[in-house]
Design a protein around this nucleic acid. Sequence first.
DNA 1: CAAACATATTCCGTTATCGGCATATGTCAA
DNA 2: TTGACATATGCCGATAACGGAATATGTTTG
Lengths: 113, 113
Amino acid sequence: MARSSTTSDVFNAIAEAHRRDILDTLMAGEKPVGAIVTDLSMSQPQVSKHLRVLTEVGLVSCRADGRRRLYRLEPARLRPMHDWLAKYEQAWNNRLDRVEDYLKELQQQGEQQ
Amino acid sequence: MARSSTTSDVFNAIAEAHRRDILDTLMAGEKPVGAIVTDLSMSQPQVSKHLRVLTEVGLVSCRADGRRRLYRLEPARLRPMHDWLAKYEQAWNNRLDRVEDYLKELQQQGEQQ
DNA sequence: CAAACATATTCCGTTATCGGCATATGTCAA
DNA sequence: TTGACATATGCCGATAACGGAATATGTTTG
């Protein structure tokens, strides 16, 4: 049995770096496929396929404009991930008393009062 | 070319539902492999393999205790995901003026303020 | 209608994943 | 040391992901 389908949930959809790149570039606003292609230097079919996956999980939506299709970010769909993460956020805050973690924080962030 | 290696980054590591389950069960605290096996009704090798992946991306750490190995959550490693998400969090808040999103919020959350 | 343009889809080869099963490694107890 | 116990690893088959290239679909313009 292989990995569960990538089209079924947000976690899998976002596991791909290229798809995260597409979401990032769509933060600037609605864009046609061609703009994404040039922005990210990916092939047009590659972009279309990733957009399909992102559409299927609802992370982007699509609107026709003449012969182009304008894709738009649907950030609300990221909420499930945020909620899942929130549990751990608390966990990492609770452990700030541990010396290890404190040192890690200092190392990673340079400074933090 | 297939999907980029699951062992290389946190996004891929948590794309697997079983691995998220393991992290969830470790929130209760340090546990030996056997406890995870019974908690989640997975096979022991299956759990060990997922723990390997989680260890490689630093999401869990391991400590020997006699003939067992106690695994512990390392929630700080989820920070990169949180940071990536934060950008979109802003985006979904900024769009609250759009009726669509507002309705979605109401539907999903029931109430808010 | 034909040709140019924008995007989607299909087919293909390569590669990685996942789970199962068997087995190796390591540790304690008698 | 021998055997029970706990965990890790290796091998396997099935599945599906990814990118590339070619092509199909759909739209505008002449």
